[in-house]
Design a protein around this nucleic acid. Structure first.
Lengths: 218, 218, 218, 218
DNA sequence: GATGAATGAGCATTCATTCAT
DNA sequence: AATGAATGAATGCTCATTCAT
């Protein structure tokens, strides 16, 4: 306690080692990496730019050297995550033998991504509604997905095929969210059975069939 | 102190008339009404309790006489909206002649609600992920939906029927969100065709059929 | 919203010069200095953190960079004042020739401190009762005082010597409070005579005698 | 939950039974009673007038029918407590046989009161410093105490007798505070020995002697 | 005399952003 | 390029006080 114990708070020495004056690109990347993790854990409104900078080992002002605001870094993190997902999806489609295997692997991949980024995803949905730039980027991803589905299927397809594809995307996406967020488990549902249903759905789509055949119902 | 003393106070003119000494229930209702509208427009994190109170014509402190915090009024608004939806769904099921008509009306109803409360819904999803109480309420609603579906169908049903029902709920919900949020239109999809697909889906479920018949696919 | 929109913003003129980017230690010291003076004048519950910051020439947020809340800065101010007092007491004990002189100087010193910090002291008493951390710090100071008294006296002492020492501390402390707060004057008492009584008391204690024998002094 | 479960907060029925429209004096008394207890528990700044009214079973506005503000009711509570103490002190002095018994009983009585009202006392000290009316009332009590001591002693007494009496009052008061607040126990002091010291002190004063001669007691 | 819903002003705290170094 | 102390403005919440009933 003595006299010198004048009640100092934590001494701010011992800075994390970080390349001060590193390449600007590397700094930007580190900021995005850290932001993705933090956003995912506490949500978009759960942090602030100062914390994001500190999480990456930088000072607050450094953040503003690289991004105009919090939304910008969020979109950058989203972009990176989506890109990574696409690369993997495309590899799966190249490698898989037969639509059954491809379907299974796509569903697994989707689930994995939704599990990994479930916090980011929840924030994204809210942001897409309120922010035009987020919306534009989100829509572009969706169009890309639909184009890919059309390409895989070739010329075949009912007149309402695009709508069917979209509904299927929504189904897989929302259902994987439910599993990732623990909703399925909380409702006492079998993850296995749900995934089987999704795999059937995706396989049907990849194989070009109609899916719920209305003809049979007549 | 001196400098800040120059700050002009808010001008207390133009007081709007308001029921002082109203019934507490009515005040609470007015607060929820206003909050639902404001949340729906700007999202959960887009307002604060002071603004919610003002939007209902009250002073900040009045808010806290009725709700402990912002989350509480959000859940109250959500509860009201969900309750209203249930009342209508149950009426539809009572009134409709045949599963085809019931399906059509349920899909329409769902879409209407998602359109009306699209802002609230987006915030809800984010809140459910971060807030245990919101989650509990949300899950209770879902269980209720699943129970109703099981009841309508009676004893029939595959071993994975619950999972099928859940996936169907997710499909209808997410797809109606997409229409309500303008995503479908932005992607150039036909709302009409999407709704037809959803109606088929719901009708199949109400009629007790399995849906994507795997047997036929072998 | 409309009405409140008429509220004029604070006029940002006349910024007083201030060391932006000063050493954090110096800022902290300035905050404590200012807080000690303000607390002393208006009491613990008579200010708020914003005012304390402004009194030191800083903005509200700066306060929170250095202290978690008002209680923390109060304790820091108390700590500083107590430390200063101890330094002086120890110097007096080293320098004084004979217990008579030491007693006189200790009483004078105590009175000076109580006069200087009378506002702070009054708040402290209330805080000690309601706040555990304040209490712990306060008790630690008292123990230190008792230890010092025991050390000065050496082995001599009655079985109830600690209790005597404590009662003496309370007496000197409370009586100096009464003088410092103007109570003695308001009651028509002679400060001089009161101080003589206190000096006798302290001298007796320093000399190791049981009580100040007045008979001997005549 | 149902439809009626619209999330009502606690229903404010079932009012405590209280004589609505009782005699104003009785209302005032009940308010003071309740306030004394509440202030004592949480301190002057730990409550607000609404809570004090509710604690007495009344509505907020009723408080303002009887007291202009919180300070006023605090002083009223203080006045009542002091009056009660005086009545008891005077009875003790009438009943006690000999100064030894009187001293013992006065010390016990003082301790009991300080224990009972320790929260009120701590708030009082702070208020006395900042509030002129509180100060005036407090000083009047002290004068009364000093007059009583002088009367008991009769003509005897040193030239500095008033000062001696005052210092003795401060000693007893502050030491009883220390016991009541748990400070004595926390410092490992024996309450019994402290009380013995105080009794000697008071007895000496009542008997008109200068100081409690320990030698004589052996 | 009592009520209690309502409130304006104030307090504790946070955040996005800046700027001198 | 990076810093980090500093900040104005705003946010969540509380309190002493009023007034129509």
């Amino acid at each position: 306690m003595k006299i010198s114990g004048l009640g100092l708070k934590a001494i701010p020495s011992m800075r994390r080692e970080r390349p001060r004056r590193g390449a600007p690109f590397a700094t930007r990347e580190r900021l995005i990496d850290a932001a993705a993790i933090v956003f995912n854990r506490v949500g978009y409104d759960g942090t602030d730019s100062n914390r994001l900078a500190r999480a990456a080992g930088y000072a607050p002002a450094t953040f503003y050297k690289h991004f105009p605001d919090k939304r910008a870094i969020f979109l950058a993190a989203y972009e990176r995550w989506v890109s990574a997902e696409w690369i993997e999806v495309e590899r799966v489609l190249d490698d898989a033998r037969g639509s059954r295997e491809a379907a299974a692997r796509i569903v697994d991949l989707t689930l994995m991504h939704h599990r990994r980024w479930r916090g980011l995803r929840a924030s994204l949905r809210a942001l897409v509604l309120s922010d035009a730039r987020a919306r534009a980027f989100y829509r572009a991803q969706r169009r890309r997905q639909l184009r890919m589905m059309a390409r895989l299927r070739g010329q075949r397809g009912a007149p309402d095929q695009v709508e069917r594809d979209a509904v299927q995307l929504f189904t897989v996406e929302r259902t994987c969210d439910a599993i990732a967020e623990g909703e399925a488990a909380a409702l006492g549902l079998s993850t296995q059975r749900i995934l089987d249903l999704l795999r059937d759905l995706v396989e049907g789509s990849l194989a070009g069939r109609r899916r719920p055949r209305r003809a049979a119902r007549r």
